[in-house]
Design a protein around this nucleic acid. Structure first.
Length: 478
DNA sequence: CGCACTAGTTATAAAACTAGTGCGGTGCTTTATT
């Protein structure tokens, strides 16, 4: 069977991108496979091509409904109609028709929450699954432990379904993430295919400032004098809104993006960024997954990310076209406290857990016990997950360990901003990659990064300023 | 937790202190019954 011929006839490509062929061969041999390929390499081909060549259903676990919709649309576009997504966007009739017609479907996209529902597990486990794909597999590690526990239950489904071949896809995984993927997907001797995470066309800068307010001034100057498109990552929704307002007043075509905005608005803003109507996005970490924009010139962090993996992922959204691009991290002494609070407080603390346990003993329901103990909805879901297999004391021990892990990850970023040696080498070392060959344009510590190439000709070309209500109407009309 | 901000205090006022308050991310799910 000639792979290249398949590639040509089904997808119209003449050759594979680095890593693809190796991954596909591994999948065709029905090996468990982990593919760690940089963004923009075409990860979806890694399951689409073997999926077409193998009998049975390709089940793709995807973290976001919007991502599923995009993938379904893109597969349809190339002429494959045997594709569907199973999620809460569907009406109950639509959902029923997908289930009734399941034997006509080749690619089925689904969330970890949906796949974990007992009725769904029961239904899906009986199907002939050729490949179980976990897209954005770092979510297991990044979200599973404290946000979306159903990511940790995927292994249960895999076991029920008779251990079909697994393909885990991600752009960034350090040793820890890789271990989590193997463990929680019950992988047996997986074939790990890893491309270097070094991005030669990215320059890394840590910009230390005196005060918080200096950041706003610095960003103003930066966005006026250098070119986009770009993303500014901030740590809170409020900051996203405020910073956007300030920069809009400078005539910059920028919009904010965070989970507090309506889905419709988020969609429109993302589209406008893709088409170039908006040059800058000021966003929380809600923005980015599944955004395919090649010509992003700058990714600027207003605050420390929670881990090196998160930073590499976010900064890595710059320069997919291979052109020179900048990754800048702004830092004011003590910034880590803000991030620390956020990451340490998504798990319930000891007194809350004990309060919860006492309420349960006194006969309260799980829901009201959590509420009485002041535990958030996310916290309560997490707590419930760990209580399935742990005692109260066991859960507390677990939480202590998880918080310690989070602190370790944050420490990587603190070390990064304080580094007195090459930033690129520092980042790569977290992924067990050694220092790359010397790049001409490297980082602010090497002293070889200069931003002259980024300079734009003064003010942005289109300083048309709109009042908020005009902006709103414009968005609605698009 | 620790920073940013506000309101109240203080030897006529002004500027500088203190005490008190607020804040801080990510997404899936949802199939009734009068």
């Amino acid at each position: 069977m000639d792979l290249h011929q398949e590639l040509k006839s089904r997808f119209g490509f003449n050759h594979f991108r680095p890593g693809q062929e190796e991954v596909i061969l591994s999948v065709l041999k029905r090996n468990d496979t982990i593919a760690i390929l940089p963004t923009g390499v075409g990860k979806s081909l890694c399951y689409q091509l073997p999926g077409e060549m193998m009998d049975g259903l390709v089940l793709v676990v995807s973290p976001l409904v919007s991502l599923m919709e995009d993938q379904v649309a893109s597969i349809r576009k190339r002429g494959e109609k045997r594709v569907a997504a199973l999620n809460s966007f569907l009406s109950s009739e639509e959902r029923k028709s997908v289930l009734d017609e399941i034997h006509k479907i080749k690619f089925l996209f689904i969330s970890p929450e949906m796949i974990s529902r007992p009725d769904m597990t029961n239904f899906l486990m009986k199907l002939p699954i050729s490949i179980l794909v976990v897209d954005e597999a770092h979510c297991i590690s990044q979200w599973g432990f404290d946000f979306r526990p159903d990511y940790l239950r995927l292994g249960e489904f895999i076991r029920s379904a008779g251990n079909p071949p697994i393909l885990a896809l991600t752009a960034t995984a350090d040793a820890r993430v890789e271990t989590d993927i193997i463990r929680y997907l019950h992988m047996s001797k997986p074939n790990v295919i890893r491309q270097s995470l070094d991005r030669p066309n990215l320059t890394y800068t840590v910009q230390q400032l005196e005060m918080e307010a200096d950041k706003t001034a610095w960003l103003k100057e930066r966005l006026i004098t250098t070119k986009g498109p770009g993303i500014i990552y901030v740590a809170s929704r409020k900051r996203a809104e405020e910073l956007t307002r300030v920069l809009q007043q400078e005539g910059i075509a920028i919009a904010s993006y965070h989970a507090g905005k309506e889905a419709g608005d988020r969609n429109i803003i993302q589209q406008q960024f893709l088409t170039g109507e908006i040059t800058w996005i000021c966003a929380t970490n809600a923005f980015g997954m599944g955004v395919h924009k090649d010509n992003i010139r700058q990714v600027i962090h207003d605050q420390l990310p929670q881990s090196a993996a998160a930073y590499v992922q976010e900064a890595g959204r710059a320069g997919r076209d291979g052109e020179l691009s900048a990754a800048v991290l702004l830092y004011v002494m003590g910034d880590e406290q803000k991030v620390r609070f956020i990451v340490q407080h998504d798990l319930p603390d000891e007194s809350q857990v004990r309060h919860f346990a006492a309420m349960r003993t006194s006969g309260q329901s799980i829901e009201s016990s959590a509420e009485l103990a002041g535990i958030s909805e996310t916290g309560s879901r997490i707590l419930r997950y760990y209580l399935e297999t742990h005692s109260i004391d066991g859960v507390l021990k677990m939480f202590t360990k998880l918080k310690y892990d989070k602190e370790e990850k944050l420490r990587q970023m603190i070390a990064y901003v304080q580094a007195d040696s090459c930033l690129r080498a520092q980042l790569l070392s977290y992924f067990d990659e050694s220092s790359p060959l010397k790049h001409d344009m490297c980082c602010s510590v090497c002293g070889t990064a200069n931003d002259e190439w980024l300079l734009s000709n003064g003010r942005p070309a289109n300083p048309r300023r709109l009042l908020p209500w005009q902006e709103r109407i414009r968005l609605l009309l698009c």
